[in-house]
Design a protein around this nucleic acid. Structure first.
Lengths: 155, 155
DNA sequence: TATTGTTATACTCTATAACTATA
DNA sequence: TATAGTTATAGAGTATAACAATA
């Protein structure tokens, strides 16, 4: 049985997928997202709720449709995200003058306090993941990733 | 109305999330995955079925549990992936001597032919995405991404 | 007992159509 | 007619428990 198992064991080089840069890009992204998720779970935040809280904090009064655009989330899906932050009293939906359809999103003091703590933890997370890179390497990586992200879809 | 809208418009620098390297990593990964998905759709393959087909092709006779390990997919989820490839007659589940529980996975001639075409398209895809980088830059990126992927989870 | 493949299930993320109340 | 927020829903992707057959 061990003999058969050995024959079937994959040699290190048998992973033919590792030739593809896209494979490594995806693997690195998954590792980072997993670590970030653990980091934010300490504050009962998800990646999307953290992002939303941060954007609202930096853009007081913006509307849900604008936030959806910034976060690249469909409007219907943003509703439950905002609901979650609202229920936790981290943000508020305030009336917009001259447009009764829309809400102006604002962070609460409680939200600002939590965001400050989360931001500090995220900074540690980034240092933990990217700290082994020199500052110039980090900038080069940022530049490369930005250009890749904008290389767009075919056709 | 336009006045209110302008006030609420986000300035380019208001996207406070772009400070995070993890944000750019995720965005780049999503762009690449989307382009790869389009590329493989021409052959009625998904990323996971393409990966499975390629690993089976390079490791004839491996079992589903081994393939699940290589692809980092849970065994129950691999079943439907193998079902799909089997239904399309791209692979075969063959009996394993000395172990009636397991199947030996093998690619069919039809599968090999499709894989060759898909491989060529994926090569073009990678060139389209990463072609703007010099070869040394590609190798540097591969090295960085590999080390990031292995930086592991905290705690 | 442990393992292989399988079934059923559930949870998250994402995407679309359609409704309401306003504009 | 168009827009903001909402509801309902459906599809991927992913995760776990439990089963039958076999080791």
């Amino acid at each position: 049985m061990t003999a058969i198992k050995k024959i079937h064991q994959l040699t290190p080089n048998a992973d033919c997928l590792s030739e593809l840069l896209g494979y490594h890009l995806r693997a690195a992204s998954k590792t980072v997202q997993a670590d970030l998720a653990l980091t934010l779970a300490q504050f009962e935040l998800r990646m999307i709720t953290y992002s939303a809280l941060k954007v609202i904090s930096n853009n007081a009064g913006l509307r849900q449709s604008q936030l959806a655009d910034v976060l690249s989330v469909e409007r219907p899906n943003l509703v439950v995200i905002i609901d979650e932050l609202d229920r936790k009293e981290l943000i508020e939906r305030k009336q917009v003058k001259h447009d009764k359809r829309a809400y102006a999103l604002e962070i609460t003091p409680k939200g600002s306090q939590l965001l400050a703590q989360a931001d500090a933890a995220v900074q540690k997370h980034e240092a933990r993941i990217f700290g082994m890179l020199a500052v110039e390497e980090q900038e080069a990586l940022r530049h490369i990733l930005t250009s890749i992200a904008q290389s767009g879809a075919q056709k």
